[in-house]
Structures are given as C-alpha cells and as structure tokens.
Amino acid sequence: MMCCNPVNKRDCPNNPESLAATTVFSVNEIEALYVLFKQIDRGAVEDGKINKVREKFKLKVFGPNKGGTLFADRVFDLFDTKHAQALGFEEFVRALSIFHPDAPIDDKIDFSFQLYDIKNQGFIEREELKQMMEAALAESDLNLKDDVIETIIDKTFEEADTKKDGKIDFEEWHALANAHPCLLKNMTLANLRTLKNITVTFPEFVFHSQVKD
C-alpha cells in the first residue's frame, strides 16, 4: 500500500522514548498516538486559529451536536495542562495514559476528581454536582424533574459526604470511587490496549513505525 501523507518518527516533535519511559505506552504506541493526534490537530493548524484546536478536540470527542458542553470544556482543560488553549502532543499522551487499562487506579481516581471539581476548589459542592447532573442529563437527552434531581443529590451526599460538611473532598471521593468502581468506567479506554492494531484505523501507519517493541 502506498502512502500519500506519511507520518513517521522524525515528524514526532517530542522524544517518544522519553514519553514511553514516563507513561504506560510503548514507543510504537506513542508513534501511533501521534497519528491520532495529528488527525485532531491538522485542521486546527491549517485554520491558524488557536481556539480551533479546542473546537476540533470537542468535535472529535463529543460529536457535532455536543460542542458547547460543560464536560467538553472540562476534559479539554484537563488535557491542556499548560493552559495554552492548545492541545500539545506531550500533554495529550500523558492525559491519555491515565485512561489506559493498565494505568494505576489512583491516577484514575485523581483525574476523575479533577474532572468533577469544576471550580478547582479541592472539593465538590452540591451546586457543582447539580450543574454537572443537569449538563449530563441534557447531553443524554434525559429529562428528570428538579425534585428527582434533588433527591438523587441528597442520596449521593448522604453516602459520599461522610464528614457532613456539605462538600465532597478528595478523600471522600476516593472512598466513594472504591465503593462504586462503575464511577471510573469512563476512565478506562479499551482502545488504548489495542493501539498496536492502530493500522486498522490508520492504514498509513503501516510503513512508518520504525521501532519494534
């Protein structure tokens, strides 16, 4: 198979060996992720608008009708650890590493807490939780009456807020996540275990990975 738009190791702006040493990914997998990254990034670079990166990321992850959501912005912000409003490849790999099936569970708990702590206060308040619930329900096209939402939040705080101070801190979140592993379901992407099969999705990668694991 000929390739018109090759992506090879020399194109990779970061040192894949260094990234491999500090994440769960192999060098080959990081090269494969670079192909994926370029797919998201290419349109933004060509467009020349820095915010286009955010829009491309949101479009890819959340689809054309979910562009302005609370979670889309929150996930992007957690990937964009340098707060550059741009999706750097190294940050992209490090964040995705947390979603690997083999990543430590504590890393997943930490990341998910940051996701839900939308005001970066170090705890989750009742109002924040309600805001996230309403966003989640809207994104899922589910309608729940306000009193049902309030009841669900009451029950959640009754279980999670063991210190009874009206907020869920990291320690309480850790206990809740351990009691309900399903809360971390979205923190694991099975696709990351099969990155070596990336050629199924991105055939152009066949001839250009130069490292054998």
Binding site: I40, M133, A136, L176
Partner: peptide, 24 residues
C-alpha cells in the same frame, strides 16, 4: 435513574465518551 447516585448518572452520560477519539 433515581436508583443511581449522581456520579453514576453523570459517568453514564454521552458527554464523557473519550472513546470517540478512536473513531476513524
């Protein structure tokens, strides 16, 4: 949904599907 806690409901939502990154 009433049987779920709030975080279960949120984590089930369509808005948290990073798997879409891998759709070609």
């Amino acid at each position: 949904p009433e049987a779920l806690n709030a975080f279960e409901l949120i984590s089930m939502s369509a808005g948290l599907n990073l798997g879409n990154l891998f759709d070609s």
